[in-house]
Amino acid sequence: MNEKHVLKLPQDLKEQLGVEPGTQVKVHIGADEIKITTQKPVEIRKRRWGVIILTAIMTAIFLGYFLTRKIYQISLVGSESVATMVLVLTTISGFLSFAAAFIQLKHQSGSAVEAVSWRNFPTVALSCTLISFMLMAGLFWIAGNLFKGATFDLFTSTALFALITSVEVQAVNSIVPQLSSRLLTNIFIAVIVSGVILAMISNQNLYWWKHNLSFLGTNQAVASWEFNLALIFAGLILLALVDYLFASLKRVFPKSRQLLVLRILLTLLAIDLALVGVFPNNTQMHTLHTRVAGYLIFLVLALIFGIKWLLPDISKDFLHTSWMIAAALLAGEILFQVVGYLSLTAFEIMAFLLAFSWLVMLFERLNDYLEPIQNRQYIIK
């Protein structure tokens, strides 16, 4: 049985929040602030109507396209298929839904979105859209292999499209109000992991691992844009995450030079990560790609070795873990460059996993400074 919490509020504050006795609210307790949020029935109804209207418009476009083309039996996957229309129209629906919800909540006092700056909106919106696109592309790739040659009549295809679009729009509507530094961290992880895995699966028949990890982004690879775009957007999300985190950390650690240096290094890391995707390892860009990829390693090592000075009140456990990861990176470098035990692909994957894991741990540590937070449901009295 869930414990019930009762919140007593002054009458004038109740009127300002627009709540009555018995209303359920969420209390967000942060490092230096308390936020009380509630979803009014009118807002919930507006969102539901938004989902219905957007789904209906996209479904009408789907139906109109195939009626115009006089196609009445539609393939599950292919050039003119349910999958193609979902990847185009449903992805656009997700982006529009994200934009509408973000703009609405940005003007709403007390919402979590208030902490996300307008300059970060394009990056966050496009990144969420990219994740959605990759997820749907992966699911349809699996479905296409499981149900080869599957086709549906126009009515069934339209119903399937409407269902997927409705789920997508509702999912986006539920994600936007929860935007936070931790969610941005999870988006950063999801973009990199989904992009790399999708690129690996797409190129499994080309034996990409006999070349190197960067092969996935070259013009010899299948759908290399997925790999490169994932790196570019991961860099942009990292840039947005750094901006979001350190703007908030200023309130916790005012005038800290160490945090300023840490912010600069992480910003350079984000830009460099995006440049690895901008300059793929093709013949004409090989030197440039190798150089920016090398800078990535140096920046991560500089962060690891300097973390004791850069991060206030660093815990011994985190510090020891950082030293172990640094030692593993150096050992991998020796085994690859000097001993010749590791192949280039094995070294790249090992270095990527170690550096990526440490970076995620760092952001979780930074989030801990901001969020000794409890979210509880209270009943107004």
Rank of each mutant, 00 (worst) to 15 (best):
Thr151Met: 13
Val176Asp: 02
Ala190Ser: 14
Gln170Ile: 10
Leu198Ile: 08
Ser180Phe: 05
Gln170Trp: 11
Gln204Asp: 14
Met200Ser: 13
Ser157Phe: 04
Glu168Ile: 15
Ile175Leu: 11
Val172Met: 10
Thr185Phe: 02
Thr151Arg: 13
Leu154Ser: 11
Ile197Asp: 08
Phe155Gln: 13
Thr156Asp: 10
Leu183Thr: 03
Leu179Trp: 02
Ala199Pro: 01
Ser202Phe: 06
Phe152Tyr: 14
Asp153Thr: 07
Ser174Ile: 12
Ala190His: 03
Ile187Tyr: 00
Ser174Trp: 12
Leu179His: 02
Leu179Ser: 02
Asn173Ser: 12
Ser180Trp: 03
Leu154Ile: 15
Asn203Val: 06
Thr156Pro: 04
Phe188Asn: 01
Gly195Arg: 01
Val176Cys: 03
Phe188Thr: 01
Leu163Thr: 12
Ser174Ala: 15
Thr158Ile: 07
Gln178Tyr: 06
Ile197Tyr: 09
Asn173Thr: 10
Phe161Ser: 05
Ser166Gln: 10
Phe152Thr: 08
Thr165Asp: 14
Ile187Lys: 00
Asp153Gln: 10
Ile197Gly: 08
Gly149Lys: 10
Ile164Trp: 03
Leu160Asn: 04
Val176Pro: 01
Val172Pro: 03
Asp153Glu: 14
Ala171Glu: 11
Asn173Asp: 11
Thr156His: 11
Gln170Gly: 14
Leu163His: 07
Asp153His: 10
Val196Trp: 02
Ser181Thr: 05
Asp153Cys: 07
Val172Tyr: 01
Ser174Phe: 12
Ser202Gln: 11
Thr185Asn: 05
Ala199Val: 00
Leu179Asp: 02
Ser194Phe: 07
Phe188Glu: 00
Phe152Asp: 06
Ser166Ile: 07
Asp153Phe: 08
Leu154Lys: 13
Met200Lys: 10
Leu146Arg: 15
Phe147Ser: 13
Val191Tyr: 03
Val176Ile: 09
Ala171Gln: 12
Ser194Tyr: 04
Leu198Arg: 04
Thr185Lys: 01
Leu163Pro: 05
Ala162Gly: 08
Thr158Met: 07
Ile175Arg: 04
Leu183Glu: 01
Leu163Ile: 13
Asn203Trp: 03
Ile189Cys: 06
Ser181Met: 04
Thr165Met: 08
Ser181His: 04
Val172Gly: 02
Gln178Val: 00
Val167Glu: 07
Ile192Pro: 00
Leu184His: 00
Gln178Thr: 05
Thr165Lys: 06
Phe155Ala: 14
Ala162Cys: 09
Ile201Glu: 12
Leu183Lys: 00
Thr165Phe: 07
Thr185Glu: 04
Ser180Asn: 09
Ala159Ser: 09
Ser181Ala: 15
Ala171Val: 10
Gln170Phe: 12
Leu160Pro: 02
Ala171Ile: 09
Thr165Glu: 08
Phe155Lys: 13
Phe188Ser: 00
Arg182Gly: 07
Glu168Ser: 14
Leu160Glu: 04
Val167Ser: 08
Ser202Lys: 08
Arg182Glu: 11
Ile189Ala: 06
Ser174Gly: 10
Ile164Gly: 03
